[in-house]
């Protein structure tokens, strides 16, 4: 019981929320890093995946990248980048690691989404005289949309988790509250930080599920 009480006390102490080590500042850093890295990785991965999926090429690449992303420990990459010459350039090591680990789910889901579009539909669209680009934009992309957003969702959750880990080599974000708690052997702070991180991850997942429901082009009235 002691830990729960102390965690509650930690979370309800105003001083823990303000200042550069405070929750609000760390949350801001976390969200900023997450948003920027998610945008960069989407800009890199989605066009490649959509074009490869449209052409039906590079399936092995999509699968292998996703397997490699699982096998390579995020923590190891963060530390390797920190010790590399890039390490002296502020948050660049973190940004690169975050982008690297966000790409596999984006690439794989978008590729599979494009490939799983009913071939008969594509044939029908071609038969109606659509060019390759029109087929891609008007038939394949809308049908692949749910899986593409699923990919963005897993990438977002992955980025939130990796940003947390980036606190270990001294990056910003909510993970810093946890690592500082460990350093101070303050279990209440460790648990409070962990709760904040967990809630943030679940919120990000929830928001994307909502976005997915609202934006799916096939669920829009009149489009069906």
């Amino acid at each position: 019981m002691g830990v729960i009480d102390r965690t509650w006390t930690w979370l309800t102490t105003g001083a823990h929320w303000s200042g550069t080590d405070g929750v609000w500042h760390r949350l801001g850093e976390h969200l900023f890093l997450t948003a920027v890295c998610l945008l960069i990785s989407c800009a890199i991965a989605l066009p490649i995946a959509v074009v490869l999926g449209h052409l039906g090429k590079g399936g092995a690449l999509a699968v292998n990248i996703s397997n490699a992303g699982r096998a390579v420990p995020t923590f190891a990459v963060l530390v390797l980048l920190l010790l590399s010459p890039l390490g002296s350039h502020g948050s660049w090591p973190t940004v690169i690691a975050l982008v690297l680990f966000a790409i596999p789910p984006l690439l794989t889901n978008a590729y599979v989404g494009m490939r799983e579009v009913d071939r008969d539909m594509v044939e029908a669209a071609r038969g109606m005289g659509m060019t390759g680009r029109q087929v891609m934009a008007r038939v394949e992309l809308p049908l692949a949309f749910p899986l593409i957003v699923t990919g963005v969702r897993s990438a977002a959750v992955q980025v939130v988790a990796t940003t947390t880990l980036a606190a270990l080599p001294g990056g910003g974000g909510l993970g810093r509250i946890i690592t500082a708690g460990f350093r101070l052997t303050d279990t209440a702070q460790v648990v409070a930080g962990a709760l904040l991180v967990a809630v943030l991850a679940l919120l990000v997942e929830g928001v994307f599920i909502l976005v997915q429901r609202l934006l799916d082009p096939l669920r829009r009235p009149g489009a069906a």
């Binding site: 830990v3 959750v157 939130v160 988790a161 947390t164 880990l165 606190a167 270990l168 993970g175 946890i178 708690g181 460990f182 279990t187 460790v190 648990v191 930080g193 962990a194 709760l195 991180v197 967990a198 991850a201 679940l202 997942e205």
Partner: peptide, 17 residues
Amino acid sequence: TILYTVPSLAMFSLLVP
């Protein structure tokens, strides 16, 4: 699925107590 969403550092930290 919810458990899977929790980042690893947070998961381990929550189990410490």
